[in-house]
């Protein structure tokens, strides 16, 4: 892989991804983190347009299924990853550009990117993506503000080999979109009456099991329709239903109140995302220096370091 260019590392956090998508100009979607993966987890999130899986990249694993190299590539947006740190953005852009759902509005920027790059091969698509000024600046605006420029002599432990890939249904088949492969990986057909989430679940579960045994971190996020939009739509439907029937039942009332609470919860969540973003973008250096001065004046700095060393020793190496 070439140099990391001007791309920063970004966190695998649903707030970061949701805001990133908004910065691309996409409407009607958000990203939710999956804490568990049992049967009911998606019940409150449907429709789920795609999944983003973060895991530690193992150099030597072979693609589990055939890599698509045929004419399907003309229809599937698949881009080879040409720079390192862009993989989070690459995974989410790949899901969005292959998403064909009325809830999802790509907006001018991604529509342009798609139109422009569909005639290219995967490598050229990757280059086009990494050269997109809008996408790069949206991506970079999501990262923690760098306190200053410096070369980390040792790669920090969490940052090295993590990788994001996407899973989604395209034209009745399940695909894995991994920018480090030569093409999309075909996981086979989804039956007409089958929920694609039931097809992808065992694949992800077996993958998670491998990582859990090796104590490797992973993270799973879902690209879903804008929740607030869905709840508002449901309230509208309930209200017009009662209007048509000319009566209001307690059940409907309870349901509408439940939906309004969920909307409030979504609003609070978006506010929290904004707050976290302002923190991420904040330059904490003056705060840190002032705090260290205060601690130095009170002679609390050296003891603090001693304690920190003890704790670090107890935790053992690494």
């Amino acid at each position: 892989m070439e140099s990391a260019g001007d791309w920063c590392l970004i966190e695998s956090d649903p707030g970061v991804f949701t805001q990133l998508i908004k910065k691309f100009g996409v409407k009607g979607v958000q990203v939710e983190e999956m804490w568990t993966f049992d049967d009911s987890i998606f019940d409150n999130l449907r429709p789920v347009h795609g999944l983003i899986f973060l895991f530690k990249y193992l150099q030597h694993d072979e693609p589990p299924h055939p890599v698509v190299k045929d004419s399907r590539l003309e229809k599937i947006y698949f881009a080879k990853q040409v720079i390192n740190n862009a993989c989070a953005t690459q995974a989410v852009v790949s899901l969005l550009l292959n998403c064909n759902h009325p809830d999802v509005i790509l907006g001018p920027e991604l529509t342009k990117l798609k139109e422009f790059s569909m005639s290219f091969d995967p490598r050229m698509r990757g280059l086009t993506l990494s050269n997109s000024q809008t996408i790069r600046s949206a991506h970079n605006s999501m990262s923690q503000q760098a306190l200053f420029e410096f070369d980390p002599k040792v790669p920090t432990k969490d940052e090295d080999a993590y990788h994001f890939i996407g899973y989604m249904p395209i034209d009745g088949r399940l695909y894995e979109l991994d920018g480090l492969r030569e093409g999309p990986i075909d996981h086979g057909p989804i039956a007409p009456e089958q929920d694609w989430l039931d097809v992808v679940r065992p694949i992800i579960v077996s993958r998670i099991n491998v990582y859990t045994e090796g104590e490797i971190h992973f993270n799973l996020m879902a690209l879903v329709s804008d929740r607030k939009m869905i709840y508002e739509r449901q309230i509208q439907a309930l209200m017009s239903e009662t209007r048509m029937l000319g009566m209001e039942t307690d059940d409907v009332d309870v349901e509408i109140r439940r939906l309004r609470m969920l909307i409030e919860y979504e609003d609070a969540k978006m506010l929290r995302y904004n707050q976290e973003m302002l923190r991420r973008r904040h330059n904490y250096l003056p705060f840190i220096i002032t705090l260290l001065k205060i601690l130095a004046e009170e002679k609390k700095l050296s003891p603090l370091l001693e304690k920190a060393k003890e704790r670090a020793l107890k935790k053992g190496p690494k």
Partner: peptide, 18 residues
């Protein structure tokens, strides 16, 4: 966590002598 990240960045820059 955002402050922790900045503080960790500070300490690794500090120990690298920069």
């Amino acid at each position: 966590p955002q402050f922790a990240q900045a503080a960790n960045q500070f300490s690794s820059a500090l120990t690298s002598g920069q």
